[in-house]
Design a protein around this nucleic acid. Structure first.
Lengths: 115, 115
DNA sequence: TCCTTAATTCAAAGGTTATTGAACTATTGA
DNA sequence: TCAATAGTTCAATAACCTTTGAATTAAGGA
């Protein structure tokens, strides 16, 4: 089974920026970046919100072309679409990830502990 | 007379991204980037919207820390806060500007004409 | 002083977004 | 088959965003 994703050239800058402009979604992207290569599933983000709410935010990220989600059994393997984003908007993802390195802790008011 | 601006360290990534995630505001930023150094005033953006609407979007950009506005007589001199943004989120503004080079024409459905 | 220009403020309308809990689907394993 | 697990969908709500026109402020020039 496969979920709808925009093609690389359908990814729009305004949409990417507004979808990234949310603390929960920046938290998800920060997690994904930290574990780049290892796909994550919805449940691994549960400290960022309820299951229902994560489903909503993960759909936004996928529809904007920021993440890719593949269905595997009862879970989805979620990865960053780094190649497509880098091709489309060079440098953007790197600068966002660098600026979001304190997420998801930062937006919950918890101090980051890693240097 | 001076308008309220956040200090550099008050500029938040989520806010910057969500404020930039709007076609009118990307258009304003693209104009400012193209004429970097030369301050612009509100009326120079009139092809992006009505005066009232621009006032609203320019206030959003200023409150997010993306632009600086200085009152000079009856106009405001609007500039990009490039140094503050580069210090806070290195590379972000450059990649956004590069991706927005077809704005403000793109979002009105007009093809860009410059190579 | 009077008029014009530049821009903001206000209130209203309409649209979009985020969050919730309950109900649902689909897959896996016992 | 039955129950547990992983996620989605739905409807409702509250909050927020965008756009508009009319009214307002404030400065500059005749």
């Amino acid at each position: 089974m496969l979920l709808p994703h925009p093609t690389a050239d359908q990814i729009s800058l305004a949409t990417v920026l507004s979808v990234l402009g949310d603390p929960t979604r920046l938290g998800i992207v920060a997690y994904l970046a930290r574990r780049e290569g290892m796909p994550m599933n919805c449940s691994q983000f549960l400290d960022l919100g309820s299951k229902t709410n994560l489903s909503y935010h993960l759909a936004k990220l996928r529809e904007a072309g920021i993440t890719h989600a593949e269905v595997l059994g009862t879970s989805r393997l979620i990865t960053l679409r780094r190649d497509d984003l880098d091709a489309r908007f060079p440098g953007l993802l790197d600068s966002v990830i660098a600026g979001a390195k304190d997420f998801p802790l930062a937006f919950k008011g918890i101090e980051a502990m890693d240097a």
